[in-house]
Design a protein around this nucleic acid. Sequence first.
DNA 1: CCAGCTCAAGGTGTATACAGTTCAAAGTGT
DNA 2: ACACTTTGAACTGTATACACCTTGAGCTGG
Lengths: 253, 253
Amino acid sequence: MASAPLPETSEATSSQTVRALLRLREMILAGELAPGERLSEPVMAEATGISRTPIRTALVRLQEEGLLEPIQSGGFRVRAFSLDEIRDAIQIRATLEGLSARLAAERGVAPELLEMLADCVDQIDEVLADDEALSEARFAAYVDGNARFHELIAGACGSEVVRRQVERAMALPFASPNGFLRVQAVAPDALHTLRLANAQHRAVVEALAGREGARAEALMREHARIPQRNLETTLAHPAIRELIPGASLIVPG
Amino acid sequence: MASAPLPETSEATSSQTVRALLRLREMILAGELAPGERLSEPVMAEATGISRTPIRTALVRLQEEGLLEPIQSGGFRVRAFSLDEIRDAIQIRATLEGLSARLAAERGVAPELLEMLADCVDQIDEVLADDEALSEARFAAYVDGNARFHELIAGACGSEVVRRQVERAMALPFASPNGFLRVQAVAPDALHTLRLANAQHRAVVEALAGREGARAEALMREHARIPQRNLETTLAHPAIRELIPGASLIVPG
DNA sequence: CCAGCTCAAGGTGTATACAGTTCAAAGTGT
DNA sequence: ACACTTTGAACTGTATACACCTTGAGCTGG
Protein backbone atom coordinates (compact mmCIF):
# COMPACT_ATOMS: atom_id res chain seq x y z
CA MET A 1 0.00 0.00 0.00
CA ALA A 2 2.81 2.37 0.75
CA SER A 3 4.81 1.97 -2.44
CA ALA A 4 3.49 2.20 -6.00
CA PRO A 5 3.37 5.85 -6.97
CA LEU A 6 -0.13 6.70 -8.13
CA PRO A 7 -0.51 5.85 -11.82
CA GLU A 8 -0.06 9.16 -13.62
CA THR A 9 -3.65 10.27 -13.75
CA SER A 10 -2.93 12.83 -16.41
CA GLU A 11 -1.48 10.82 -19.28
CA ALA A 12 -2.42 7.18 -19.05
CA THR A 13 -6.03 8.00 -18.20
CA SER A 14 -7.65 4.70 -18.90
CA SER A 15 -10.28 5.35 -21.51
CA GLN A 16 -9.90 6.60 -25.03
CA THR A 17 -12.99 8.75 -24.62
CA VAL A 18 -11.45 10.70 -21.75
CA ARG A 19 -8.21 11.07 -23.67
CA ALA A 20 -10.13 12.36 -26.67
CA LEU A 21 -12.11 14.77 -24.49
CA LEU A 22 -9.01 16.22 -22.89
CA ARG A 23 -7.09 16.44 -26.12
CA LEU A 24 -9.91 18.07 -28.07
CA ARG A 25 -10.66 20.59 -25.33
CA GLU A 26 -6.99 21.42 -25.20
CA MET A 27 -6.85 21.94 -28.96
CA ILE A 28 -9.93 24.15 -28.97
CA LEU A 29 -8.76 26.32 -26.09
CA ALA A 30 -5.28 26.55 -27.56
CA GLY A 31 -6.80 28.01 -30.66
CA GLU A 32 -5.68 25.20 -32.94
CA LEU A 33 -9.27 25.10 -34.18
CA ALA A 34 -10.73 28.40 -35.29
CA PRO A 35 -14.19 29.42 -34.05
CA GLY A 36 -16.84 28.57 -36.60
CA GLU A 37 -14.67 25.83 -38.03
CA ARG A 38 -16.27 22.46 -38.50
CA LEU A 39 -14.68 19.63 -36.56
CA SER A 40 -14.21 16.75 -38.93
CA GLU A 41 -14.32 13.48 -37.06
CA PRO A 42 -12.00 11.58 -39.41
CA VAL A 43 -9.47 14.42 -39.27
CA MET A 44 -9.55 14.54 -35.47
CA ALA A 45 -9.28 10.77 -35.35
CA GLU A 46 -6.21 10.94 -37.56
CA ALA A 47 -4.68 13.81 -35.59
CA THR A 48 -5.12 12.12 -32.22
CA GLY A 49 -4.63 8.52 -33.24
CA ILE A 50 -7.96 7.69 -31.63
CA SER A 51 -10.76 6.04 -33.54
CA ARG A 52 -13.90 7.89 -34.51
CA THR A 53 -16.16 6.41 -31.84
CA PRO A 54 -14.50 7.92 -28.76
CA ILE A 55 -13.93 11.16 -30.69
CA ARG A 56 -17.63 11.27 -31.37
CA THR A 57 -18.71 10.89 -27.76
CA ALA A 58 -16.15 13.50 -26.75
CA LEU A 59 -17.74 15.87 -29.25
CA VAL A 60 -21.16 15.29 -27.72
CA ARG A 61 -19.73 16.04 -24.29
CA LEU A 62 -18.07 19.21 -25.54
CA GLN A 63 -21.34 20.33 -27.01
CA GLU A 64 -23.11 19.86 -23.68
CA GLU A 65 -20.22 21.75 -22.15
CA GLY A 66 -20.91 24.65 -24.47
CA LEU A 67 -17.64 24.70 -26.39
CA LEU A 68 -19.18 23.30 -29.57
CA GLU A 69 -22.45 23.95 -31.32
CA PRO A 70 -24.30 21.60 -33.64
CA ILE A 71 -24.41 22.26 -37.39
CA GLN A 72 -27.70 21.98 -39.23
CA SER A 73 -26.42 19.44 -41.68
CA GLY A 74 -24.73 17.40 -38.98
CA GLY A 75 -21.56 17.53 -36.95
CA PHE A 76 -20.24 20.35 -34.80
CA ARG A 77 -18.40 23.61 -35.09
CA VAL A 78 -16.30 25.52 -32.59
CA ARG A 79 -18.41 28.09 -30.78
CA ALA A 80 -17.42 31.75 -30.70
CA PHE A 81 -18.12 33.89 -27.64
CA SER A 82 -18.86 37.59 -27.63
CA LEU A 83 -17.65 39.74 -24.77
CA ASP A 84 -21.22 40.12 -23.59
CA GLU A 85 -21.60 36.38 -23.39
CA ILE A 86 -18.44 36.11 -21.33
CA ARG A 87 -19.69 38.77 -18.96
CA ASP A 88 -22.91 36.83 -18.62
CA ALA A 89 -21.13 33.53 -18.09
CA ILE A 90 -19.15 35.05 -15.23
CA GLN A 91 -22.36 36.37 -13.70
CA ILE A 92 -23.97 32.97 -13.98
CA ARG A 93 -21.13 31.41 -12.08
CA ALA A 94 -21.22 34.13 -9.45
CA THR A 95 -24.97 33.79 -9.05
CA LEU A 96 -24.79 30.05 -8.56
CA GLU A 97 -21.85 30.32 -6.19
CA GLY A 98 -23.91 32.88 -4.32
CA LEU A 99 -26.79 30.43 -4.12
CA SER A 100 -24.54 27.68 -2.82
CA ALA A 101 -23.02 30.01 -0.24
CA ARG A 102 -26.38 31.28 0.94
CA LEU A 103 -27.86 27.80 1.27
CA ALA A 104 -24.75 26.68 3.10
CA ALA A 105 -24.99 29.58 5.53
CA GLU A 106 -28.69 29.02 6.12
CA ARG A 107 -28.24 25.31 6.72
CA GLY A 108 -25.04 25.61 8.64
CA VAL A 109 -21.67 24.27 7.57
CA ALA A 110 -19.56 21.63 9.26
CA PRO A 111 -16.60 22.94 11.28
CA GLU A 112 -14.24 20.83 9.17
CA LEU A 113 -15.40 22.57 6.02
CA LEU A 114 -14.98 25.99 7.61
CA GLU A 115 -11.48 24.99 8.52
CA MET A 116 -10.68 23.85 5.00
CA LEU A 117 -11.98 27.13 3.64
CA ALA A 118 -9.92 29.05 6.17
CA ASP A 119 -6.90 27.04 5.10
CA CYS A 120 -7.34 28.23 1.52
CA VAL A 121 -7.60 31.82 2.64
CA ASP A 122 -4.53 31.47 4.84
CA GLN A 123 -2.56 29.89 2.01
CA ILE A 124 -3.40 32.80 -0.25
CA ASP A 125 -2.61 35.33 2.47
CA GLU A 126 0.79 33.76 2.84
CA VAL A 127 1.38 34.01 -0.90
CA LEU A 128 0.47 37.69 -0.82
CA ALA A 129 2.33 38.59 2.36
CA ASP A 130 5.41 39.66 0.45
CA ASP A 131 5.27 43.01 -1.33
CA GLU A 132 7.42 41.91 -4.25
CA ALA A 133 6.02 40.98 -7.61
CA LEU A 134 4.59 37.49 -7.78
CA SER A 135 6.97 34.72 -8.76
CA GLU A 136 5.71 31.91 -10.89
CA ALA A 137 5.66 29.59 -7.91
CA ARG A 138 3.73 32.03 -5.73
CA PHE A 139 1.30 32.60 -8.55
CA ALA A 140 0.74 28.85 -8.83
CA ALA A 141 0.07 28.66 -5.10
CA TYR A 142 -2.50 31.42 -5.44
CA VAL A 143 -4.21 29.67 -8.31
CA ASP A 144 -4.32 26.49 -6.31
CA GLY A 145 -5.75 28.09 -3.19
CA ASN A 146 -8.29 30.03 -5.21
CA ALA A 147 -9.45 26.98 -7.14
CA ARG A 148 -9.81 24.96 -3.96
CA PHE A 149 -11.77 27.72 -2.26
CA HIS A 150 -14.26 27.96 -5.09
CA GLU A 151 -14.64 24.19 -5.33
CA LEU A 152 -15.39 24.03 -1.63
CA ILE A 153 -18.00 26.77 -1.99
CA ALA A 154 -19.62 24.88 -4.85
CA GLY A 155 -20.14 21.88 -2.61
CA ALA A 156 -20.64 23.77 0.63
CA CYS A 157 -24.41 23.51 0.74
CA GLY A 158 -24.13 19.73 0.62
CA SER A 159 -26.28 19.39 -2.46
CA GLU A 160 -24.98 17.31 -5.32
CA VAL A 161 -27.40 19.02 -7.72
CA VAL A 162 -26.09 22.45 -6.82
CA ARG A 163 -22.47 21.35 -7.00
CA ARG A 164 -23.00 19.94 -10.47
CA GLN A 165 -24.66 23.08 -11.71
CA VAL A 166 -21.94 25.33 -10.36
CA GLU A 167 -19.32 23.15 -11.98
CA ARG A 168 -21.20 23.37 -15.25
CA ALA A 169 -21.14 27.12 -15.00
CA MET A 170 -17.37 27.01 -14.55
CA ALA A 171 -16.85 24.79 -17.56
CA LEU A 172 -16.44 27.71 -19.91
CA PRO A 173 -12.78 28.65 -19.53
CA PHE A 174 -13.36 32.37 -19.11
CA ALA A 175 -16.04 31.79 -16.50
CA SER A 176 -13.73 29.79 -14.27
CA PRO A 177 -12.48 31.51 -11.11
CA ASN A 178 -8.95 31.30 -12.43
CA GLY A 179 -9.83 32.31 -15.97
CA PHE A 180 -8.46 35.84 -15.92
CA LEU A 181 -5.95 35.41 -13.14
CA ARG A 182 -2.97 35.63 -15.42
CA VAL A 183 -4.26 38.96 -16.61
CA GLN A 184 -4.60 40.00 -13.01
CA ALA A 185 -1.03 39.01 -12.28
CA VAL A 186 0.46 41.42 -14.79
CA ALA A 187 -1.66 44.40 -13.77
CA PRO A 188 0.14 47.22 -11.93
CA ASP A 189 -2.17 46.96 -8.95
CA ALA A 190 -2.05 43.16 -8.99
CA LEU A 191 -1.19 42.59 -5.35
CA HIS A 192 -3.75 45.11 -4.19
CA THR A 193 -6.58 43.50 -6.12
CA LEU A 194 -5.59 39.97 -5.15
CA ARG A 195 -5.59 41.03 -1.51
CA LEU A 196 -9.03 42.52 -1.94
CA ALA A 197 -10.19 39.25 -3.46
CA ASN A 198 -8.87 37.30 -0.52
CA ALA A 199 -10.48 39.72 1.91
CA GLN A 200 -13.74 38.81 0.23
CA HIS A 201 -12.89 35.13 0.61
CA ARG A 202 -12.33 35.64 4.30
CA ALA A 203 -15.57 37.57 4.67
CA VAL A 204 -17.44 34.72 3.02
CA VAL A 205 -16.02 32.25 5.52
CA GLU A 206 -17.06 34.59 8.30
CA ALA A 207 -20.57 34.85 6.88
CA LEU A 208 -20.83 31.08 6.58
CA ALA A 209 -19.71 30.65 10.17
CA GLY A 210 -22.26 33.22 11.35
CA ARG A 211 -25.07 31.81 9.23
CA GLU A 212 -25.40 35.12 7.42
CA GLY A 213 -26.93 33.85 4.20
CA ALA A 214 -27.65 37.14 2.47
CA ARG A 215 -24.16 38.40 3.23
CA ALA A 216 -22.49 35.27 1.91
CA GLU A 217 -24.53 35.45 -1.27
CA ALA A 218 -23.87 39.14 -1.86
CA LEU A 219 -20.17 38.65 -1.29
CA MET A 220 -19.87 35.83 -3.80
CA ARG A 221 -21.66 37.94 -6.36
CA GLU A 222 -19.51 40.97 -5.75
CA HIS A 223 -16.44 38.77 -5.83
CA ALA A 224 -17.06 38.10 -9.52
CA ARG A 225 -16.64 41.77 -10.33
CA ILE A 226 -12.91 41.19 -10.26
CA PRO A 227 -12.80 38.90 -13.31
CA GLN A 228 -15.26 41.27 -14.95
CA ARG A 229 -12.74 44.05 -14.46
CA ASN A 230 -9.97 41.87 -15.77
CA LEU A 231 -12.05 41.20 -18.82
CA GLU A 232 -12.26 44.94 -19.46
CA THR A 233 -8.51 45.20 -19.03
CA THR A 234 -7.97 42.41 -21.50
CA LEU A 235 -10.28 44.17 -23.89
CA ALA A 236 -8.31 47.38 -23.59
CA HIS A 237 -4.91 45.74 -24.05
CA PRO A 238 -5.22 43.11 -26.77
CA ALA A 239 -1.59 42.19 -26.30
CA ILE A 240 -2.36 40.31 -23.08
CA ARG A 241 -5.02 38.20 -24.69
CA GLU A 242 -2.42 35.46 -25.02
CA LEU A 243 -2.49 35.06 -21.26
CA ILE A 244 -6.02 33.79 -20.99
CA PRO A 245 -7.07 30.30 -21.98
CA GLY A 246 -9.45 30.12 -24.88
CA ALA A 247 -8.76 33.69 -25.95
CA SER A 248 -9.08 32.65 -29.57
CA LEU A 249 -12.75 31.90 -28.99
CA ILE A 250 -13.51 35.49 -28.11
CA VAL A 251 -14.88 37.54 -30.96
CA PRO A 252 -15.50 41.31 -30.97
CA GLY A 253 -19.32 41.01 -31.34
CA MET B 1 -45.15 25.11 -50.66
CA ALA B 2 -48.74 25.39 -49.53
CA SER B 3 -49.59 21.72 -49.40
CA ALA B 4 -47.53 18.99 -47.66
CA PRO B 5 -48.51 19.01 -43.99
CA LEU B 6 -45.44 19.39 -41.83
CA PRO B 7 -43.84 16.01 -41.29
CA GLU B 8 -45.00 14.96 -37.83
CA THR B 9 -42.22 16.34 -35.74
CA SER B 10 -43.03 14.08 -32.85
CA GLU B 11 -42.84 10.60 -34.29
CA ALA B 12 -40.80 10.55 -37.46
CA THR B 13 -38.10 12.74 -35.93
CA SER B 14 -35.30 12.26 -38.37
CA SER B 15 -32.46 10.78 -36.38
CA GLN B 16 -32.31 7.56 -34.44
CA THR B 17 -30.36 9.31 -31.71
CA VAL B 18 -33.20 11.77 -31.07
CA ARG B 19 -35.70 8.97 -31.09
CA ALA B 20 -33.60 7.03 -28.62
CA LEU B 21 -33.21 10.08 -26.40
CA LEU B 22 -36.95 10.76 -26.30
CA ARG B 23 -37.85 7.13 -25.81
CA LEU B 24 -35.34 6.52 -23.03
CA ARG B 25 -36.25 9.70 -21.19
CA GLU B 26 -39.88 8.72 -21.42
CA MET B 27 -39.16 5.27 -20.04
CA ILE B 28 -37.14 6.64 -17.16
CA LEU B 29 -39.72 9.24 -16.18
CA ALA B 30 -42.53 6.73 -16.55
CA GLY B 31 -40.78 4.58 -13.98
CA GLU B 32 -40.23 1.67 -16.32
CA LEU B 33 -36.64 1.72 -15.14
CA ALA B 34 -36.15 1.70 -11.40
CA PRO B 35 -33.71 4.17 -9.81
CA GLY B 36 -30.35 2.55 -9.24
CA GLU B 37 -31.00 0.08 -12.01
CA ARG B 38 -28.29 -0.33 -14.59
CA LEU B 39 -29.27 0.50 -18.15
CA SER B 40 -28.06 -2.33 -20.33
CA GLU B 41 -27.37 -1.04 -23.83
CA PRO B 42 -28.18 -4.31 -25.61
CA VAL B 43 -31.45 -4.60 -23.71
CA MET B 44 -32.47 -1.04 -24.54
CA ALA B 45 -31.48 -1.59 -28.13
CA GLU B 46 -33.68 -4.65 -28.25
CA ALA B 47 -36.57 -2.91 -26.52
CA THR B 48 -36.52 0.11 -28.81
CA GLY B 49 -35.45 -1.55 -32.03
CA ILE B 50 -32.61 0.95 -32.31
CA SER B 51 -29.02 -0.16 -32.58
CA ARG B 52 -26.54 0.31 -29.76
CA THR B 53 -24.75 3.34 -31.20
CA PRO B 54 -27.60 5.86 -31.02
CA ILE B 55 -28.67 4.37 -27.68
CA ARG B 56 -25.19 5.01 -26.41
CA THR B 57 -25.07 8.67 -27.36
CA ALA B 58 -28.54 9.15 -25.90
CA LEU B 59 -27.24 7.74 -22.64
CA VAL B 60 -24.37 10.22 -22.64
CA ARG B 61 -26.83 13.06 -23.20
CA LEU B 62 -29.07 11.80 -20.39
CA GLN B 63 -26.09 11.72 -18.10
CA GLU B 64 -25.25 15.34 -18.88
CA GLU B 65 -28.90 16.07 -18.30
CA GLY B 66 -28.62 14.59 -14.83
CA LEU B 67 -31.07 11.72 -15.18
CA LEU B 68 -28.36 9.08 -15.28
CA GLU B 69 -25.16 8.66 -13.35
CA PRO B 70 -22.07 6.76 -14.43
CA ILE B 71 -21.17 3.43 -12.83
CA GLN B 72 -17.60 2.78 -11.72
CA SER B 73 -17.24 -0.34 -13.79
CA GLY B 74 -18.81 1.25 -16.85
CA GLY B 75 -22.26 2.10 -18.09
CA PHE B 76 -24.98 4.13 -16.39
CA ARG B 77 -27.66 3.73 -13.79
CA VAL B 78 -30.88 5.65 -13.22
CA ARG B 79 -30.33 8.41 -10.72
CA ALA B 80 -32.47 8.73 -7.61
CA PHE B 81 -33.37 12.12 -6.20
CA SER B 82 -33.97 12.95 -2.58
CA LEU B 83 -36.56 15.52 -1.61
CA ASP B 84 -33.78 17.88 -0.60
CA GLU B 85 -32.25 17.63 -4.02
CA ILE B 86 -35.56 18.43 -5.65
CA ARG B 87 -35.97 21.46 -3.42
CA ASP B 88 -32.51 22.57 -4.44
CA ALA B 89 -33.15 21.97 -8.11
CA ILE B 90 -36.21 24.20 -7.95
CA GLN B 91 -34.19 26.88 -6.22
CA ILE B 92 -31.51 26.66 -8.88
CA ARG B 93 -34.06 27.23 -11.59
CA ALA B 94 -35.61 30.11 -9.68
CA THR B 95 -32.23 31.68 -9.08
CA LEU B 96 -31.27 31.51 -12.73
CA GLU B 97 -34.65 32.77 -13.86
CA GLY B 98 -34.17 35.60 -11.40
CA LEU B 99 -30.81 36.38 -12.94
CA SER B 100 -32.26 36.41 -16.42
CA ALA B 101 -35.12 38.65 -15.33
CA ARG B 102 -32.83 41.07 -13.52
CA LEU B 103 -30.43 41.37 -16.43
CA ALA B 104 -33.35 41.85 -18.79
CA ALA B 105 -34.76 44.62 -16.63
CA GLU B 106 -31.41 46.33 -16.29
CA ARG B 107 -30.73 46.16 -20.01
CA GLY B 108 -34.24 46.93 -21.09
CA VAL B 109 -36.52 44.59 -22.99
CA ALA B 110 -38.02 45.06 -26.42
CA PRO B 111 -41.69 46.13 -26.50
CA GLU B 112 -42.53 43.04 -28.58
CA LEU B 113 -41.20 40.78 -25.87
CA LEU B 114 -43.15 42.62 -23.20
CA GLU B 115 -46.22 42.14 -25.30
CA MET B 116 -45.61 38.43 -25.71
CA LEU B 117 -45.16 38.10 -21.96
CA ALA B 118 -48.36 40.04 -21.36
CA ASP B 119 -50.12 37.72 -23.78
CA CYS B 120 -49.15 34.73 -21.69
CA VAL B 121 -50.41 36.41 -18.54
CA ASP B 122 -53.68 37.34 -20.25
CA GLN B 123 -54.15 33.84 -21.55
CA ILE B 124 -53.74 32.46 -18.05
CA ASP B 125 -56.05 35.09 -16.60
CA GLU B 126 -58.69 34.04 -19.05
CA VAL B 127 -58.28 30.42 -18.05
CA LEU B 128 -58.72 31.36 -14.41
CA ALA B 129 -61.57 33.83 -14.87
CA ASP B 130 -64.17 31.18 -14.23
CA ASP B 131 -64.70 30.06 -10.65
CA GLU B 132 -65.49 26.48 -11.52
CA ALA B 133 -63.00 23.68 -11.17
CA LEU B 134 -60.48 23.46 -13.97
CA SER B 135 -61.43 21.35 -16.96
CA GLU B 136 -58.76 19.34 -18.69
CA ALA B 137 -58.74 21.79 -21.59
CA ARG B 138 -58.41 24.83 -19.36
CA PHE B 139 -55.66 23.13 -17.47
CA ALA B 140 -53.81 22.48 -20.72
CA ALA B 141 -54.14 26.15 -21.64
CA TYR B 142 -52.69 27.11 -18.29
CA VAL B 143 -49.76 24.76 -18.72
CA ASP B 144 -49.12 26.18 -22.17
CA GLY B 145 -49.22 29.80 -21.07
CA ASN B 146 -47.06 29.08 -18.07
CA ALA B 147 -44.45 27.21 -20.11
CA ARG B 148 -44.29 29.98 -22.69
CA PHE B 149 -43.93 32.63 -20.01
CA HIS B 150 -41.00 30.87 -18.41
CA GLU B 151 -39.34 30.20 -21.74
CA LEU B 152 -39.59 33.87 -22.61
CA ILE B 153 -38.08 34.83 -19.27
CA ALA B 154 -35.19 32.44 -19.87
CA GLY B 155 -34.32 34.24 -23.07
CA ALA B 156 -35.40 37.71 -21.99
CA CYS B 157 -31.93 39.04 -21.23
CA GLY B 158 -30.89 38.29 -24.77
CA SER B 159 -28.00 36.09 -23.75
CA GLU B 160 -27.69 32.68 -25.31
CA VAL B 161 -25.43 31.53 -22.48
CA VAL B 162 -28.01 32.42 -19.87
CA ARG B 163 -30.85 30.88 -21.82
CA ARG B 164 -28.95 27.63 -22.15
CA GLN B 165 -28.17 27.49 -18.46
CA VAL B 166 -31.76 28.17 -17.43
CA GLU B 167 -32.95 25.45 -19.76
CA ARG B 168 -30.43 23.09 -18.24
CA ALA B 169 -31.83 23.86 -14.83
CA MET B 170 -35.31 23.00 -16.07
CA ALA B 171 -34.19 19.68 -17.54
CA LEU B 172 -34.93 17.78 -14.35
CA PRO B 173 -38.65 17.07 -14.54
CA PHE B 174 -39.47 18.21 -11.03
CA ALA B 175 -37.58 21.46 -11.51
CA SER B 176 -39.60 22.45 -14.55
CA PRO B 177 -42.15 25.23 -14.08
CA ASN B 178 -44.92 22.76 -14.90
CA GLY B 179 -43.49 19.94 -12.83
CA PHE B 180 -45.95 20.07 -9.96
CA LEU B 181 -48.82 21.73 -11.72
CA ARG B 182 -50.98 18.64 -11.75
CA VAL B 183 -50.59 18.46 -8.02
CA GLN B 184 -51.61 22.08 -7.83
CA ALA B 185 -54.71 21.41 -9.89
CA VAL B 186 -56.18 18.93 -7.42
CA ALA B 187 -55.54 21.04 -4.35
CA PRO B 188 -58.61 22.56 -2.67
CA ASP B 189 -57.25 26.09 -3.04
CA ALA B 190 -56.09 25.44 -6.60
CA LEU B 191 -57.63 28.45 -8.27
CA HIS B 192 -56.48 30.76 -5.52
CA THR B 193 -52.86 29.67 -5.79
CA LEU B 194 -52.85 29.72 -9.56
CA ARG B 195 -54.18 33.26 -9.48
CA LEU B 196 -51.47 34.23 -7.06
CA ALA B 197 -48.92 32.72 -9.41
CA ASN B 198 -50.24 34.70 -12.31
CA ALA B 199 -50.26 37.87 -10.25
CA GLN B 200 -46.56 37.27 -9.77
CA HIS B 201 -46.21 36.78 -13.53
CA ARG B 202 -47.88 40.11 -14.12
CA ALA B 203 -45.72 41.84 -11.54
CA VAL B 204 -42.62 40.49 -13.26
CA VAL B 205 -43.75 41.97 -16.57
CA GLU B 206 -44.36 45.25 -14.80
CA ALA B 207 -40.90 45.17 -13.26
CA LEU B 208 -39.30 44.40 -16.62
CA ALA B 209 -41.13 47.30 -18.23
CA GLY B 210 -40.04 49.64 -15.43
CA ARG B 211 -36.43 48.40 -15.45
CA GLU B 212 -36.76 47.36 -11.84
CA GLY B 213 -34.07 44.68 -11.79
CA ALA B 214 -34.08 43.81 -8.11
CA ARG B 215 -37.86 43.52 -8.08
CA ALA B 216 -37.95 41.27 -11.10
CA GLU B 217 -35.31 39.02 -9.58
CA ALA B 218 -36.99 38.81 -6.20
CA LEU B 219 -40.33 38.02 -7.81
CA MET B 220 -38.95 35.16 -9.87
CA ARG B 221 -37.36 33.70 -6.78
CA GLU B 222 -40.48 34.00 -4.71
CA HIS B 223 -42.47 32.56 -7.58
CA ALA B 224 -40.69 29.24 -7.10
CA ARG B 225 -42.09 28.89 -3.61
CA ILE B 226 -45.27 27.60 -5.19
CA PRO B 227 -43.76 24.41 -6.58
CA GLN B 228 -41.90 24.06 -3.30
CA ARG B 229 -45.22 24.09 -1.49
CA ASN B 230 -46.66 21.63 -3.96
CA LEU B 231 -43.72 19.38 -3.25
CA GLU B 232 -44.62 19.43 0.43
CA THR B 233 -48.21 18.59 -0.46
CA THR B 234 -47.07 15.70 -2.58
CA LEU B 235 -44.94 14.51 0.28
CA ALA B 236 -47.88 14.63 2.67
CA HIS B 237 -50.26 12.81 0.33
CA PRO B 238 -48.35 9.99 -1.33
CA ALA B 239 -51.44 9.07 -3.31
CA ILE B 240 -50.99 12.02 -5.65
CA ARG B 241 -47.44 11.09 -6.49
CA GLU B 242 -48.77 9.51 -9.64
CA LEU B 243 -49.60 12.96 -10.94
CA ILE B 244 -46.07 14.21 -11.25
CA PRO B 245 -43.69 13.11 -13.98
CA GLY B 246 -40.70 11.18 -12.78
CA ALA B 247 -42.23 10.51 -9.38
CA SER B 248 -40.60 7.11 -9.35
CA LEU B 249 -37.19 8.77 -9.19
CA ILE B 250 -37.96 10.39 -5.87
CA VAL B 251 -36.63 8.51 -2.88
CA PRO B 252 -37.33 9.28 0.79
CA GLY B 253 -33.68 10.28 1.53
C1' DC C 1 -17.96 36.32 -69.05
C1' DC C 2 -21.46 34.58 -66.09
C1' DA C 3 -24.94 31.45 -64.46
C1' DG C 4 -26.40 26.97 -63.74
C1' DC C 5 -25.58 22.16 -63.50
C1' DT C 6 -23.08 17.91 -62.59
C1' DC C 7 -20.12 15.13 -60.29
C1' DA C 8 -16.91 13.74 -56.96
C1' DA C 9 -14.92 13.96 -52.49
C1' DG C 10 -15.58 14.06 -47.84
C1' DG C 11 -18.42 13.66 -43.79
C1' DT C 12 -22.05 12.20 -40.65
C1' DG C 13 -25.19 8.79 -38.81
C1' DT C 14 -25.74 4.06 -37.99
C1' DA C 15 -24.90 -0.81 -37.61
C1' DT C 16 -22.08 -4.38 -36.20
C1' DA C 17 -18.01 -7.15 -34.81
C1' DC C 18 -14.59 -8.01 -31.29
C1' DA C 19 -11.74 -7.93 -27.16
C1' DG C 20 -11.29 -7.20 -22.39
C1' DT C 21 -13.61 -7.04 -18.09
C1' DT C 22 -17.00 -7.46 -14.60
C1' DC C 23 -20.39 -9.92 -12.05
C1' DA C 24 -22.91 -13.60 -10.46
C1' DA C 25 -24.13 -18.13 -9.98
C1' DA C 26 -22.99 -22.76 -9.56
C1' DG C 27 -20.06 -26.12 -7.94
C1' DT C 28 -16.52 -28.07 -4.89
C1' DG C 29 -13.95 -28.91 -0.93
C1' DT C 30 -13.75 -28.69 3.99
C1' DA D 1 -23.73 -26.37 6.06
C1' DC D 2 -20.63 -22.85 4.69
C1' DA D 3 -16.99 -20.53 2.43
C1' DC D 4 -14.15 -20.26 -1.46
C1' DT D 5 -13.08 -20.91 -6.23
C1' DT D 6 -13.97 -21.28 -10.81
C1' DT D 7 -16.36 -20.71 -14.83
C1' DG D 8 -19.50 -18.65 -17.95
C1' DA D 9 -22.68 -15.23 -19.43
C1' DA D 10 -23.34 -10.53 -20.33
C1' DC D 11 -21.87 -5.96 -20.96
C1' DT D 12 -18.99 -2.04 -22.03
C1' DG D 13 -15.55 0.33 -24.74
C1' DT D 14 -13.63 0.54 -29.18
C1' DA D 15 -12.87 -0.15 -34.03
C1' DT D 16 -14.55 -0.35 -38.51
C1' DA D 17 -17.66 -0.79 -42.53
C1' DC D 18 -21.33 1.23 -45.19
C1' DA D 19 -25.10 4.10 -46.94
C1' DC D 20 -26.88 8.49 -47.51
C1' DC D 21 -26.26 13.31 -47.62
C1' DT D 22 -24.05 17.65 -48.17
C1' DT D 23 -21.12 20.72 -50.26
C1' DG D 24 -17.92 22.69 -53.16
C1' DA D 25 -15.38 22.75 -57.36
C1' DG D 26 -15.13 22.35 -62.05
C1' DC D 27 -17.36 22.19 -66.33
C1' DT D 28 -20.71 23.37 -69.80
C1' DG D 29 -23.97 26.17 -72.12
C1' DG D 30 -25.84 30.59 -73.00
